[in-house]
């Protein structure tokens, strides 16, 4: 199914990705602080919204 060109290009890219000296900033996981802000912000928004407009 895959062409020889595709395989060659794939191998070239994998060689770059698997090089121990290669570093892609996108590979660094989302910082824990971001997850914390997301959790706090979401909870505040949900609780405040429910308190304001839920049909109790």
């Amino acid at each position: 199914m895959e062409t020889a060109d595709f395989r060659r290009e794939l191998d070239r890219r994998l060689a770059v990705i698997e090089d121990p000296d290669h570093h892609d900033p996108a590979a660094d996981d989302l910082p824990r602080a971001d997850w914390l802000w997301l959790l706090i912000g979401s909870l505040v928004l949900i609780v405040a919204s429910l308190a304001w407009g839920y049909p109790w």
């Binding site: 928004l45 919204s49 407009g53």
Partner: peptide
């Protein structure tokens, strides 16, 4: 409107996250 704002905010927030 009021209930729609609450439902739209909460539903989209959780789904998108």
């Amino acid at each position: 409107v009021k209930t729609a704002i609450v439902a739209t905010l909460i539903g989209n927030l959780i789904g998108v996250v």
